[in-house]
């Protein structure tokens, strides 16, 4: 038989009280996962395991949900999270070139994290600032009408911070 994995994580009081609040509501899993990701930046396996116990839901179901939705991550993102919008307007106005250039500048692929853990890069779905296309965000700060030659300066702003 498989040995049962033991949870080795202590959840914060805030997270715990959030889970308690939602525990008995139907359809709570996605809301709780959002809260977990807000706290950790991703859904760590230990936390998923702990959730499975608290909510009495199989770990497989939690993973089924986490892997179905693009929003949830299973790996730890970089300290600075770069997201390049790949909505239609941004695509037409050169979003892909922006991604290629960032890949080149930082030497990391889309969905990857730099070795020092400083930057991670995602191509994301439309963030709805189409008037500013092409758009990218770093840690939520929006940069609009981005051109390739602006990228080194934008990245430098964040390098070594946080």
């Amino acid at each position: 038989m498989f040995e049962k994995e033991e949870a080795k994580v202590k959840l914060s009081t805030d997270l715990k009280s959030f889970i308690d609040l939602w525990k008995n509501k139907s359809g709570n899993l996605i809301m709780i996962l959002h809260r977990v990701q807000q706290e950790y930046g991703y859904v760590p396996r230990e936390v998923a395991l702990e959730l499975s116990k608290i909510l009495d839901v199989p770990l497989a179901k939690i993973y089924g949900v986490v892997t179905f939705y693009h929003f949830f991550k299973l790996t730890k993102p970089g300290k600075n999270q770069i997201a390049v919008c790949m909505g239609t307007a941004c695509y037409l106005k050169g979003g892909e070139d922006i991604i290629l250039e960032i890949e080149r500048l930082l030497g990391l692929p889309v969905n990857g994290t730099t070795e020092d853990g400083e930057f991670s890069l995602d191509a994301v779905r439309c963030i709805g600032c189409c008037g500013l296309a092409p758009v990218m965000t770093i840690n939520g700060e929006v940069f609009g009408k981005v051109k390739k030659d602006m990228l080194p300066d934008i990245i430098a702003k964040f390098k070594g911070k946080n």
């Binding site: 359809g27 899993l29 809301m31 959002h34 089924g64 179905f68 939705y69 693009h70 929003f71 779905r125």
Partner: peptide, 25 residues
């Protein structure tokens, strides 16, 4: 308020409901 999690298919009614119920959409 219930949050989606980035799945385009959840704009389809029955998938949306599955997601509201906390499942894969």
């Amino acid at each position: 308020i219930r949050l989606g999690a980035g799945a385009f298919v959840c704009g389809e009614e029955t998938a949306l409901l599955a997601s509201l119920e906390g499942n894969r959409g």
